[in-house]
């Protein structure tokens, strides 16, 4: 397994949208290396013949009827936690990127 670098941690922080400080990055680089070393053992037992398990209790075909329910919120409820709103919409500051 590759060593984890500070650049990598900074990249991960960017992917995870956390503005880590330099100090945090340095600290996490060390810690992450230790943790990954401790958990790497999963590779040794995870041989190709073992299927992965994503759900502990296997189920399939769980569907909802196509019917509107009383889970629908009023705009007042929907916006009740908004840090900033303009009428019935949420406000965010300018977007650096582009249309997705």
């Amino acid at each position: 397994m590759p060593e984890i670098s500070a650049e990598q941690v900074a990249h991960l922080a960017n992917l995870a949208r956390i503005a880590l400080t330099e100090e945090e990055i340095a600290h996490l680089t060390t810690e992450l290396g230790q943790i990954m070393q401790a958990v790497e053992q999963v590779n040794q037992v995870a041989t190709p013949d073992v299927p992965p398990t994503s759900h502990p209790i296997p189920m399939q075909n769980v569907f909802r009827a196509d019917v509107v329910t009383d889970d629908v919120l009023s705009p007042e409820q929907a916006l009740s936690g908004a840090p900033e709103r303009d009428g019935d919409r949420f406000v965010v500051s300018a977007i650096l990127g582009e249309e997705q």
């Binding site: 889970d71 629908v72 919120l73 705009p75 936690g81 019935d88 919409r89 949420f90």
Partner: peptide
Amino acid sequence: AAPNTLVSPVCLGL
């Protein structure tokens, strides 16, 4: 429909 009138907790990712 008017803004944010067709939402449940799921749509807002509450």
